[in-house]
């Protein structure tokens, strides 16, 4: 499934947040969106996911969702958005319960999602008993359970510590490479973007406009190899250069305002 943004803009009252975003996420592509704080990254993702109404432009999906996809456009949240009163398995099941599924099919889907995210032993635990990394695994399991056609991830690793982030990124990459679901990954962390994305879209400071779209030529599986080190470093440099200028201006703007 492809996701197409046509001149999407957004204003919160008088505040211009996003302006003229035209973007196509190809089928099976992982697109990272990076940019300084407050540039409207999360708002853009919200618009793509139908959780924020754009004040200009429209978002379309093109192509059929794969068979068995229950929620074609699926979100993974920065703060995990787990229900504290439900167990891990029950949190995953929440995404399925309102679909007309047999109890066995539902249970099998939950089991499969838990197995893929390494949560099988934690199925009866409650969110408060889990570490941040485990909680986000539940968030990912819940998203996998509905077999999404487009996965929208809003800074999914930002609430985690550096080591957990690294571990989860590896696991996430393995999952993504196995399924190649069309994905949009919003982050302020260039390292994450460079590790996961096929293309990286740099947004300008507010109002967020597309400043640059960088294609990462190296396949994800090879990026950690020594042979790719040089190309990746150059890319990182180029990206940082693009983001830095915006971040500096954005920071000044916040301080002035």
């Amino acid at each position: 499934m492809r996701l197409v943004c046509e001149s999407v803009g957004h204003k919160y009252g008088a505040l211009d947040v996003l302006d003229g975003i035209g973007l196509t996420v190809a089928d099976g592509e992982c697109l990272a969106v990076v940019g300084p704080s407050g540039c409207g990254k999360s708002t853009l993702l919200g618009i793509m996911g139908g959780l924020v109404e754009p004040t200009a432009g429209r978002v379309f999906v093109e192509g059929a969702a794969p068979a068995g996809s229950l929620n074609p456009i699926t979100y993974v949240f920065q703060d995990f958005a787990l229900l504290p009163w439900r167990s891990v398995a029950s949190n995953v099941a929440l995404a399925l319960e309102h679909h007309p599924l047999d109890a066995q099919v539902l249970a099998a889907r939950v089991d499969d999602a838990l197995a893929r995210t390494g949560l099988r032993e934690f199925r009866d635990a409650f969110p408060k008993q889990l570490s941040g990394g485990m909680r986000q695994r539940v968030g990912i399991a819940r998203a996998l359970a509905v077999a999404p056609a487009v996965l929208l991830m809003d800074e999914p690793l930002s609430a985690l510590d550096a080591q957990t982030r690294e571990l989860l990124m590896e696991d996430f990459l393995a999952l993504w490479l196995a399924a190649r679901t069309t994905s949009v990954y919003v982050t302020h962390n260039l390292h994450e973007a460079l590790r996961l994305a096929d293309r990286i879209c740099v947004l300008s400071r507010r109002p967020g406009r597309i400043k640059q779209i960088v294609g990462v030529g190296v396949p994800q599986a090879d990026r950690a190899l020594p042979a790719a080190a040089r190309a990746m470093a150059e890319l990182a440099e180029q990206l940082w250069h693009a983001v830095r200028a915006e971040a500096v201006d954005a920071e000044r703007e916040v301080a002035d305002g």
Partner: peptide
């Protein structure tokens, strides 16, 4: 009740009745 939980439920397409029963009331 955290708005974010309600948004989450909506993002998974839960009907309003379920949002009320499964998110709002227990929360």
């Amino acid at each position: 009740v955290p708005r974010n939980l309600i948004r989450m439920a909506q993002s998974f397409g839960l009907p309003a009745r379920d949002v009320l029963r499964k998110i709002v009331l227990p929360g």
